[in-house]
């Protein structure tokens, strides 16, 4: 076959058809590699080293100290910028042992929107282990919006047919509701659920 024959109408149509055919195995490979895509899904905790100044490290230690003045700690957290709050959250997630219950309570008390949303994000975007930590963070918090957030997460994971996450969230939600009888019922419409 002469190379010039590709320039004919039939040759060009054949070349274009070849492009389409080549895309079939590539797209198939993407589907086949779905477990790898899902495993790659995890949050990288790389809070800027600039945020971690000495005062912040001191505050992180004070958070778990029952003797520390709660008002002082509260005010210190409120004054923090977003990267510094992020550093505190990442510090909690990356050092799960021993569990710092008071830290969670104090963080949520100071800025519930930021820290609850951040934990919710970990459940949505994190790996399996990170999801567990995010759920633990939510389970330890006493804020009334936790139930709504957990219900939203449950709907989301069920809708996506994720394998284990709905059971984990359901279990946390049941425990949380049992320990907080006055749980608000959510009728919130999930954005992407038609």
């Amino acid at each position: 076959m002469k190379l010039d024959s590709i320039r004919s109408l039939e040759g060009q149509l054949l070349a274009i058809a070849c492009l389409f055919v080549a895309c079939i195995p590539i797209s198939g490979a993407v589907i086949f590699l779905r477990p790898k895509f899902e495993r790659a899904m995890s949050e990288a905790y790389t809070a800027s080293s600039a945020a971690a100044h000495d005062e912040l490290k001191q505050l992180a230690a004070q958070l778990e100290d029952p003797a520390a003045d709660p008002t002082q700690v509260h005010d210190a957290i409120v004054k923090l910028a977003a990267p510094e709050k992020e550093w505190l959250y990442q510090d909690w997630v990356t050092h799960p042992e021993p569990e710092r219950v008071i830290t969670v309570a104090r963080l949520i008390e100071a800025d519930p929107d930021y820290f609850l949303h951040r934990a919710e994000q970990t459940v949505v975007c994190g790996s399996e282990d990170q999801q567990k930590l995010g759920l633990r963070f939510l389970a330890l918090s006493e804020h009334p919006s936790v139930a709504v957030r957990l219900q939203h997460l449950l709907r989301w994971t069920r809708q996506r047919h994720l394998p284990d996450a709905p059971d984990r969230i359901q279990s946390v939600l049941t425990d949380w509701v049992a320990s907080h009888p006055k749980t608000p019922k959510s009728n919130e419409h999930s954005g992407s659920i038609p």
Partner: peptide, 29 residues
């Protein structure tokens, strides 16, 4: 040129679709 502009445009469109799919796959519903 042997490969004409329509071939390039089709290839470009296929790539746009592929990049989009790969970026979204397993991340969203």
């Amino acid at each position: 040129e042997i490969l004409t502009p329509l071939f390039a445009v089709t290839g470009q469109n296929l790539l746009i679709g592929l990049f989009c799919s790969v970026a979204l796959f397993a991340r969203v519903d």
